[in-house]
Design a protein around this nucleic acid. Structure first.
Lengths: 345, 345
DNA sequence: CTGAAAGCGCTTACAG
DNA sequence: CTGAAAGCGCTTACAG
């Protein structure tokens, strides 16, 4: 069957000898419409296989019932879970999701955001790329009257709705746990410090050391070690130090922690007895490595649901302006074998 | 700043004392427009922070430049990779992606597909849910003149564009490899047989046995063992048999294979010496378990790119009807420790 | 309860 | 090269 012209409300109207107005009202379940008419319209619509043209409807109503999402990568645990969480909540309200990935490129992020503005989405949900520090494209979103919700990695200067983890607290708890396990020279693999989440994790690390009167050793702090490869490189460097660390906090991600584990194993260094390892994000694989990796769960699926609910809450009171605020989801330390040299199960 | 009325082409026209037609032409880079006018329009558009209303444009042009994707779960390796592959290709052509997940529910799949039809997407890309056998909603897509591309899990009766793995061949190769490693009683964990991919994998298994004159033992074939939990249950049952298998092919997924591995390990059964394990999909974690799991890579990212290219190819010759055809991406056996009792590295 | 008309913001044949 | 007009498919005040 070739692409034929689709059924419109005019086709239905013609068939029933009424006007398109009435058809529209019947289809929208308006109260000002005769029950008989409504039934007839619905029946005819089904017969003619009518599908409302949402584009036209949205254009007329000035809304799109669409939420745009921009994340660095969709196939990364936290992001796919957040998206899944959002999807489950928005689905029941007939909202569409348009997904873009920035691939950590600032340029692609800007382009994606602009494409979403063009699309007249009702809301943009974003976790910013590592690259870049100019967030005028996000200001632009707000200026166009589109709701903006930032999550996880946010531009903190921009006053918007934000859904975050308490990275500082999680990091503090993780390091405290390591100290309690007897680790004394704990190295830190940092993420790009232009991202607040990585700054916060560093602060948590520093605070934990301070609380336990441990010195901050600069040569144990490695910048930008946030992929598996960079984590591995950093570990090689650290373990070859005259005084190597007895633990490594891969604050950037579990992928980085995996790099640490692989290098340590290949060098014959025992985890956790000789080296403790703490990751971040609770990627599924952290449970499967040997030894399993202690990490921090961000409740990403729940974050997704929170984001969606926040949007709907804000949409309800259309008149009052949005009050920028931050919802903090408390992450949880998941203690596994890689840091448990005193006790594990 | 509150949601103000957006700049339209009329605002630009008014400011420049020309008509909206000219503005539109300038913005669309039409050839029939004065260079001077074009420059002025572009400049003014930038000044007024104009963003084209794609909804209106699409409505008028009868296209949407949007592709809808329906998958069982976005946070599953193959699906998030396919989506990423599609996204990378469509992004450069200014296409939007609307993502829906069926959560393996037929009802939700039908609803999502209908929502995408309403949305007037240009194409629907789908991998069907395990549940369900009625595919009239997909016929409906075609009847509405929307291009339909099925991938991975397809409704085979429906003649559409399909992008598939050669599951039969992959399975045949995997089992042959196991037989060569000396396994003789190879159990099969099946997926729902209403899905062709699982039927094909079973056929490959049966053919491999036949080619090597091994008997088909019915008690070694377990139905519907396609999650980690069900894989674990099946394994417990199999290993407690009077004559237990010496290998298990978790044809449904690596998650199922992981269930097998965990149960075997907890029962003190050595992998690969006492039990060989073959998974499917090359989930990232299969490299990390101990022992690492032999599996089959589906080149899902490449599949995504293939799907997008197929769509653009079909879009180019608008006149000629779509010739249903199947593109087969050859999967690859990834041999790891879990099946290598004769030799590994 | 229903009809006639205007309009959402664009694009595009048709004239000139 | 530019303008005037129609139309994409819907919704919604305004009358009646």
């Amino acid at each position: 069957m070739k692409a034929k012209k689709r059924t419109t409300i005019y086709d239905i109207a013609e068939k029933l000898n009424i006007t398109a107005s009435s058809v529209s009202r019947a289809l929208n379940n308006s109260s000002h419409v005769n029950e008989e008419t409504k039934k007839l319209v619905l029946k005819t619509a089904a017969e003619l296989n009518y599908k409302r043209n949402i584009l036209a409807s949205n254009l007329r109503k000035g809304e799109s019932k669409t939420i745009g999402i921009v994340v660095p990568r969709i196939n990364q645990n936290i992001f796919s879970n957040v998206i899944a969480g959002i999807e489950e909540t928005t689905y029941s309200k007939d909202y569409n999701l348009i997904i873009c990935q920035s691939n950590e490129s600032h340029e692609k992020e800007v382009k994606s955001v602009n494409a979403l503005i063009n699309q007249h989405v009702d809301c943009i949900v974003i976790s910013v790329a590592a690259e870049g520090s100019d967030y005028s494209h996000l200001q632009n979103v707000i200026d166009h009257g589109i709701k903006l919700i930032q999550f996880d990695r946010v531009a903190d200067d921009l006053e918007t709705l934000k859904v975050l983890n308490d990275n500082h607290q999680a990091s503090l708890e993780g390091i405290t746990h390591m100290i309690e396990q007897g680790y004394k020279r704990i190295a830190l693999l940092e993420g790009p410090q232009n991202l607040d989440i990585f700054r916060q994790r560093k602060q948590g690390y520093l605070e934990a050391l301070k609380l336990h009167n441990l010195p901050v050793i600069n040569e144990l702090i490695i910048e930008n070690a946030w992929t598996k490869e960079l984590g591995a490189d950093a570990t090689r460097k650290l373990l070859n130090l005259p005084e190597p660390p007895d633990a490594i906090f891969a604050s950037t991600s579990d992928f980085s922690a995996l790099g640490v584990l692989e290098v340590a194993t290949s060098m014959g260094i025992k985890v956790p007895s000789d080296l403790g390892i703490l990751g971040y994000s609770n990627e599924p694989f952290t449970e499967l490595t040997s030894p399993s990796i202690t990490t921090i769960d961000q409740f990403s699926h729940y974050m997704g649901k929170t984001i969606a609910n926040l949007y709907f809450q804000e949409s309800e009171n259309k008149e009052s302006p949005i009050v920028p605020r931050t919802i903090s989801v408390k992450p949880k330390l998941i203690i596994r074998a890689s840091t448990s040299r005193r006790s594990y199960q």
